[in-house]
Simulated assay, not measured.
Amino acid sequence: MRNQETEKYIQHIRSLSYDKLTGVLEEEESAYLDNELKNDPLAQDTWKKVQEKYNSESAKAFFEDPSSLEPSARLKMLLEEPGSNRKSIGNIIKYISIAALVIFAFFIYFLLKQNSIKPEMEKQITLKTADGKVIPIVGAHTIHTTDAIVSTQDSAMSFNGSESAIAGSMNILTVPAGLDYKITLADGTLVWLNSETKLEFPFKFGQSREISITGEAYLEVAPNSESPFTVRLPGDRTIQVLGTSFNVNSYEAKQARVSLINGSVKIRAGRDSLLLKPGYEAVSGAGNISQSKFAADDVLAWRQGKFFFNALPLQEVAKVLSRWYGITVSIDDPAIGNKAFTGSLDRNKPIEEFLDNAKDILNISYVKKDGVLHIK
């Protein structure tokens, strides 16, 4: 049985195939489709089926027939010709009907494309290469780019950079709401990315190793004393490491949280800096850095699809729900936004199970309407 990621991949290849047949495929999409058709049997099968559907013999006969150039005018002319017969009229009506169905199908496809295909793409993990190409990451595939050969699985990516790759030339891996992903960098560093997280990284490191993260990620940095590793965060914050494991949370632009599992890292924020020890986490706010002990099991639980809330305001809980389930959450009653909630969330279970629990604890209610979760 096909899994959800495979079905999404087939849908995307089918969409690109429609564009290719009608001559409206964009350059970067065309390059991606050509690569998939060259290397992936599933893409080849999907392309073949699309061709069979829209290039049937009857449809082909219509488009090759001279009368197809002006179907309505040709029909009128044939009806007025003295020698016309029912068979020829029936044939041209058949061709016109086929053409009308094909044209109508493509019309409906283009009409709905902006509202269906592209929003669906926004829910997919994407890789934007340094040369500007945007590649959807779906299922297990081998992707050939200008600077690397990228291997993807349902939940992980690795790559082999080419010798011609420009060191430090940044690519962008984007993980949308509701998903998470893992990537192995050029030096062997492992990075787990949480929902709504963006990673900027090169296919080839230079003398120094530098990446940027917006969102939340857990890193196991490959040791290399001769090549320092730097993580850049929003708000002009940086993390400098040699070889270590740590979690970074930078969802909020005004604050970043770094939780050190082992090793040693130095956090910089403006003129302030702090050398962090294992078992401690640093919080960089407005112009200062503070540190305190943390519970590693709680902080890293997101990697197993769990989140522990410890007296967290409901408005902050709503942000987690939005990221993890890919839905819009609205707190309709501002008065309950500051209510503190303590409990746990399991992303592998229906959101209703969590909401029913929170409803009893906080004395709130909820309703889903038009794709929005309303809490009141």
Rank of each mutant, 00 (worst) to 15 (best):
T6F: 04
K8L: 14
K8T: 03
I10Y: 06
R14F: 08
D19L: 14
L25S: 05
E28F: 13
A31I: 11
K76E: 15
L78S: 09
P82H: 02
Q114H: 14
N115I: 15
E122P: 12
K128P: 03
K128M: 08
K133R: 15
H144V: 11
T146K: 15
A148G: 08
A148N: 06
S151I: 08
Q153I: 01
A156H: 05
A165Y: 01
A167M: 03
G188Q: 02
V191I: 08
N194K: 09
K198Q: 14
K198M: 11
F203V: 05
Q207D: 15
L219R: 02
P223M: 03
R232F: 11
R232I: 07
D236Y: 12
I239W: 00
V241D: 04
S245G: 05
E252V: 09
K266Y: 06
R271V: 12
S273C: 03
K277S: 10
V283G: 03
S284F: 03
W302G: 00
W302A: 01
F309W: 05
P313V: 07
W324L: 01
I331R: 07
P334F: 04
P350H: 00
P350Q: 03
I351H: 04
D356S: 10
Y366K: 06
K369R: 15
D370V: 02
D370A: 09
